[in-house]
Every structure is written in C-alpha cells, then in structure tokens.
C-alpha cells in the first residue's frame, strides 16, 4: 500500500474531500440558523425528547458561576456521571467520573480528582474554554451510560458510540467508535479512537482504522474488530433517519450510544461530521450521496428512507 493516492483515483473511488464536503454538502444542505440546535447539546436534548428519542438522563445544568459552589450537593446522590460543555466540540471538555466519595472523584482510569478540580473544570466550561468561538457556555451533568456488556472488551476506559452520516434523512454510512488508551477514553477518531466501519444495511463490521490507518484488532484489548455486529440495527437506522426531521439539517452526523438498560440513546448531533468514516468503511461517500441527490425532492417517511437504504446500499 502506497502512502499517496492520486486525486484522479480518489475521485474514481468516490471519496468525499473536505472542500467538497464544506461547499457542496454542509453549506448547501445545512442552514446556518439550525446550527445552534446541534451545537448546543442542551437544545439537542430537548429536541430529541420532544421527538420521542431516548437520550441520557440530565442530572443538572450549571449556568452561572455562583452555582459552581453548590456543585458538590448536586453530585452527591450520583455515583457516576459526566460533566460536559453544552457547546463543546470534538469531545473537548468532557469529564467522566465513575465513582466518588464527595471529596475524591475518580476518572475511569482511577485517577483521583479533588472537588477543587471539578469546580475549576466546571468554571472553565462556563467561561467558554471548550465552546466554539470561546463564547460563554453552560455545563451539563449527565447520567453515565452503562454500555452494553457485549462491547466491554472493545473499548478502553470509555463509551463506544455509533456515528451514522444521515444525508437528507437517508442513513448513508456508519461506523462504531471505540476509545483507546491513545484517545484518553474519548471516542473521537482524530484523538486516536478506533473507527470500525459498519455495513449500512446490516450493522456488521467491515474494516477498522486508527489514526487514519487500517487495524484489525483493538490496540489495547486485542479483540478482533471485524467480529462486531450491532443488534437491532434497523432501529438505529430509524433513529438516525428520524433526526433529519427533528433537526432540519440535510447533512448530519448522528451519534448514538447503546445503553445496557435503555437501549440505543441519542448522544449528540453534528452538523460538520468528519470524513474519516470513509477510511473506516474503506469506501467513498460521494456515490451514495449522489444517488440520494438523484432521487430528487419527493417526500418519503423515515421508514421508507430506511427501506431504501437497506435495499440500495446493501
């Protein structure tokens, strides 16, 4: 395998490039006024609840600096939780605590943080340290996801999630994102998480990548990645397709987690989903995007769209 590919060949493979994604898909299909709905996780959450989608439980919201002082009481009753910036991007500023005794708070790797650390992290979030453009933000505290037992060996210190690219309501490509030691428990590919391409029609793993290069086994647990098979895949596709009506965004990344008790839950939406999913699936996005554009403007229900995907992209 060479380290370089000609642009003609890339085009033949139907690989979507960053410039093309920005101009032909994001700016053409995603209205700017809709961005705040997905850039603010709190708004997304409300939207999803209204649309009847399951989301992780909201434990509390810290909006003002003076509320940071009372954060210990807020967290007292919860054993495991995570603190997130509402307008964060790329997994920045997410703090996961899986146990605490009101003085020491333990991260999944058992590193202990003091209450002062927690407060500082929260006030950093409020000051806009992790938000897009540095604007003031809210900190949201969510129930920790108890992810499905079958994936316990596929993830290192983090929650695996499933990213589905949804174009005009059609799920076009999917992958599972597994955190690794390199990604510090985060599920973002550019931070070193493993991306496992999933067959869009069946939810069965095909290829896997880490740092944009193919891998076969999980780098930390050694589990073979191509054994992954997502159960109840049809329901996930339906969820993804439904996010189009919910958000109004034509080109969308839908992040779903599989909770052991509550099943698939919508984690967040992304109006600028990355392109690494193409490497994880070892195929380009353009072909599928174009065949959906060719359908034209006819109105289809989410169920019809999922059916289309399951037959056309099988």
């Amino acid at each position: 395998m060479g380290w370089f590919i000609s642009s003609g060949k890339l085009r033949d493979l139907g690989v979507l490039g960053m410039n093309e994604r920005n101009i032909d898909y994001i700016s053409r299909h995603n209205e700017r006024r809709l961005f705040p709905l997905v850039d603010d996780k709190l708004k997304t959450k409300k939207l999803a609840l209204a649309a009847g989608l399951k989301v992780p439980d909201l434990l509390g919201v810290v909006r003002y600096q003076h509320q940071v002082r009372e954060i210990a009481e807020l967290l007292h009753n919860r054993e495991a939780f995570c603190i997130k910036p509402s307008k964060g991007s790329g997994g920045k500023g997410i703090l996961v605590i899986h146990d605490h005794d009101d003085e020491q708070y333990f991260k999944p790797n058992n590193q202990a943080l003091s209450l002062v650390d927690i407060k500082r992290h929260t006030s950093n979030i409020l000051a806009g340290l992790y938000s897009l453009g540095g604007q003031p933000d809210k900190a949201i505290i969510e129930d920790l996801i108890h992810f499905d037992e079958q994936f316990i060996h596929y993830s290192y210190e983090g929650v695996p999630d499933i990213r589905i690219i949804v174009f005009r309501g059609f799920p076009v490509m999917a992958m599972m994102r597994l955190s690794t030691a390199a990604s510090d428990g985060k599920a973002n590919l550019h931070q070193g998480a493993v991306g496992v391409g999933l067959d869009i029609a069946t939810g069965v793993a095909s290829h896997a990548v880490q740092f944009d290069r193919p891998v076969t086994d999980h780098p930390d647990t050694g589990m073979p990645l191509t054994d992954i098979r997502i159960s109840d895949w049809h329901r996930l596709l339906h969820m993804g397709a439904h996010c189009f009506e919910m958000s109004g965004l034509g080109y969308l990344g839908v992040d779903i987690v599989l909770d052991a008790r509550h099943g698939p839950m919508l984690l967040e939406l992304n109006a600028r989903p990355g392109l690494a999913i193409q490497i994880a699936n070892s195929r380009g996005l353009s072909g599928r995007l174009q065949s959906i554009e060719a359908i034209g403007d006819q109105v289809m229900t989410a169920e019809e769209r999922v059916a289309f995907v399951e037959t056309q992209f099988a």
């Binding site: 642009s7 890339l10 410039n19 195929r283 380009g284 072909g287």
Partner: peptide, 25 residues
C-alpha cells in the same frame, strides 16, 4: 477538489477489493 493532505490521508483506500464501491458509484 481534494486537498493535498487528503491524497495521503485517504491512501489506505487505494488498492485491493474495490469491487463493492465501484458499481454503486
């Protein structure tokens, strides 16, 4: 068009079985 860096980034997509990708495209 593609960025120069993408020609390197997407190079893992190069060879082997592209049988699945081509017809659809």
């Amino acid at each position: 068009g593609y960025r120069l860096i993408e020609l390197i980034r997407f190079s893992p997509l190069t060879p082997q079985d592209q049988s699945g990708a081509l017809p659809g495209k």
